[in-house]
Every structure is written in C-alpha cells, then in structure tokens.
C-alpha cells in the first residue's frame, strides 16, 4: 500500500536570485518501509523532507499522504493533518524545556483530543516504556541526557500512532552507541509496520535501511 506519493516536485529559492533547489522529484513509499534520503550538504534533501512534512508549502507538483492530496490545503488543515499523521524527530531533540518528559510526549495527543486525559497519559507511559525512558517520565525535559532526550522525542513522534515518521538527521547529534540504539528502535518500529523517512548523511545508517534515495543538485540520482 502506498503511504506517500510525491510527483514532479519542483522548488526554487529566490534569494539572491531564482534558482532551482529541487527538480522533478517523484517517488513513492510503501507501508512499513524504512527509507533514507542521502546526499551532500546543499543537495536539497532537507528541503525535500520539509516539503514532505507539509510545513513548507511553497513548491510545484503534488504531494499525497495516506491517499489524501495535501497540495493546496490551508495551514490550519495542514497543522491538523501533521498532528494526526506525521511524527517528527529532529537532529536536536527540541523538547519543550518548561514541561516534564511526560507532558512533552502528551502534548500532541492532547491537541488531537482523540483520547481522554487519563488514556493519553497511560499511552504516553507506554511509548516511553517502549523506548526505555519511562523512569524519567516526571523529570523536567531539560534534566535528561542527549540520548534520553532523543528517545523522548521519538516517543512524542509516536504518540498519535502516525502514518509516517520523519527524521531530519535523527542520530546526527548522538554518540555512536546512542546512534546505534536510536537506529535499532527505528528499525524495530519499521518491522512492526511503521513507515519511516529519514534524511541522513551517515552512510552506515543509510546502508542498514530498507531503501535509500540518493540526491545530488536537487535531483534524484538513484532510488
């Protein structure tokens, strides 16, 4: 089953003058696939990821996720869609420092409002346990180590059972042990049927994923 379909994506930067960043990008992802996008710095892989994430809407072409055409939707609808269908992991963990670990994980679910507060809390605990950080649940997010924070961020990405998890260098800021750990978790999730797209320049990380898209100068070189 196709989860994501990008067809003929083009994007331009206008500063200092108009030049193409992405040229005619088309690809699909199947359910349960663990896809990595690699390429040199400036090849447009992050730009592509942010278009796929629905946060960047300034592009040509069409984007469909889970059978729904997202190109042309308004910001509030896209926010709602992200909330429900996309989980995000960044290079830096980006947890909200004033909130506890548990609250950080719960916030997207509380926003979605699918479950009651109590259910949301127990689901958040479940996700934290899955990632082995449930003992830190009531600590302030800023008190955790880098590796732990990245795992909390992953738990937050998983809380609404998203159609798709997107990672922008999710292991980029971790030491090799923690990076391996994070990768194993992602791979586990993929085996359980979770679709994952990660941008990385870690060759080893890419080699161990199911499929790798190589980009250069805004174009797909191989997939």
């Amino acid at each position: 089953m196709t989860v994501l379909q990008a067809s003929h994506l083009n994007k331009y930067f206008y500063q200092p003058e108009r030049f193409p960043v992405l040229t005619n990008i088309s690809f699909e992802i199947q359910r349960g696939e663990f896809l990595t996008i690699v390429g040199k710095s400036g090849c447009g892989k992050s730009t592509l990821l942010y278009i796929l994430s629905t946060m960047d809407t300034d592009y040509e072409g069409t984007l469909t996720i889970g059978g729904r055409l997202l190109t042309g939707l308004k910001q509030p609808d896209l926010a709602r869609f992200r909330n429900e269908h996309i989980g995000f992991v960044f290079q830096f963990h980006f947890l909200l420092p004033e909130f506890s670990v548990l609250e950080n994980v719960m916030l997207p679910a509380l926003k979605l409002g699918r479950f009651s507060r109590e259910e949301t809390e127990s689901r958040a605990y479940e996700k934290l346990r899955l990632l082995g950080v449930h003992e830190q649940a009531l600590k302030a997010a800023s008190k955790l180590s880098g590796g732990q924070q990245q795992r909390v961020a992953l738990a937050r990405a998983l809380i609404n059972d998203p159609t798709l998890i997107m990672g922008d260098e999710p292991t980029g800021n971790l030491d090799s042990a923690n990076a391996k750990n994070a990768f194993d978790i992602l791979q586990d999730l993929a085996r359980q049927g979770q679709t994952i797209i990660c941008v990385t320049h870690d060759q080893e990380f890419a080699a161990r994923s199911d499929r790798t898209i190589v980009m250069s100068d805004g174009m797909i070189v191989s997939q």
């Binding site: 946060m55 910001q75 709602r80 992200r82 980006f94 947890l95 926003k111």
Partner: peptide, 14 residues
C-alpha cells in the same frame, strides 16, 4: 518551542 508546537500540529490560531 513555537516551531516545535507547529511541527507537532498546533496551528497559528492555537
């Protein structure tokens, strides 16, 4: 934090 909230699905109105 605002960027994160937006990424995780909070809209401009929120």
């Amino acid at each position: 934090d605002i960027a994160i909230l937006k990424a995780t699905g909070f809209s401009g109105r929120d």
